[in-house]
């Protein structure tokens, strides 16, 4: 009896903390989203989302994040596969090399990308020597490059860890049964690595949808993303907590829906233990 009391009290600080600083803030967001500046209940903030170009901003953010996520996947999947073919020593070195850029703050690396992509930047200086020039900065393409750079390792890591965990006997068995190397990839490795792909997409898509600094610097303010818009209502010149809260609420709901859709379509059999918001 004494022990069970101790067991219960051990979780208490965490429960109190979670209620105060995880649940309460979300309730405040809800509260602000549905009240006006005078504190009265209103739907105005939410209905305003469907006026002006806010819908376009949401669509832009989703599309750009989707493109960046797909590019991450296209690069990361073969990369993880190549990793698993290396010797253990080289696998370790490559993983370390993959992790190091993650430790640099994205503010700095984004700024470095500006230096690289600018009209007078490094790529154009090199191209200029052979009489070419490409306009890259302040285009959606530059923003996608920045996003892919920031989140590529997060896509590689889960895919690699699932792939390297695949029982090699399964591959040998399929080869014994006459599978070609292409068939081994499509019928054995690909289906077994789906959980890694899903957690990779989750880790990459969510921050990409809500990013704000990258689009300001590499997009040059030519088009606004949802993250920029939210930030401008909290720290910019036109501060409006209530409308900003409504925007964030919709962003959260959109992300929950897209995660739910993905988990639903991805693998209906393996839904065990996946933390869902």
């Amino acid at each position: 009896m004494k022990r069970s009391l101790a067991q219960r009290s051990v979780i208490a600080p965490h429960v109190v903390w979670s209620v105060l600083f995880i649940i309460a803030p979300l309730l405040f967001m809800l509260f602000y989203a549905f009240t006006g500046p005078d504190g009265s209940f209103t739907f105005e903030n939410v209905s305003r989302l469907f006026t002006g170009n806010y819908v376009l901003i949401f669509v832009n953010s989703l599309c750009l994040a989707l493109i960046a996520t797909v590019i991450c996947l296209i690069i990361a999947y073969p990369l993880a596969y190549v990793f698993t073919k290396l010797t253990p020593k080289w696998q370790k070195i490559c993983m370390l090399l993959l992790m190091i850029p993650l430790w640099m703050n994205f503010l700095i690396t984004t700024y470095s990308w500006m230096t690289i992509l600018e009209d007078t930047g490094i790529i154009n200086t090199i191209l200029g020597k052979i009489g070419l020039s490409v306009h890259m900065i302040n285009t959606p393409g530059a923003v996608v490059v920045g996003m892919v750079f920031c989140y590529l390792p997060y896509m590689v890591l889960p895919i690699y860890s699932v792939m390297s965990g695949i029982d090699h006997k399964l591959i040998e068995a399929s080869q014994d049964l006459g599978a070609s190397s292409r068939q081994v990839l499509t019928k054995v490795v690909l289906p077994l690595s789906v959980p890694g792909v899903i957690s990779g997409i989750t880790m990459v898509f969510v921050p990409q949808v809500s990013t704000f600094y990258i689009s300001q610097k590499l997009g040059g303010g030519t088009f606004q993303l949802i993250g920029d818009t939210i930030e401008s209502y909290f720290t910019g010149v036109s501060v409006n907590y209530h409308f900003g809260a409504a925007l964030s609420l919709i962003l959260m709901v959109l992300i929950i829906i897209s995660m739910g859709v993905m988990n639903h379509f991805a693998d209906p059999e393996d839904v065990t233990g996946r933390p869902m918001l």
Binding site: V206, E231, M252
Partner: peptide, 11 residues
């Protein structure tokens, strides 16, 4: 799971 920006503004 939440985007950082949502965690930030809710706090």
């Amino acid at each position: 799971m939440n985007p950082d920006i949502v965690t930030g503004i809710s706090m």
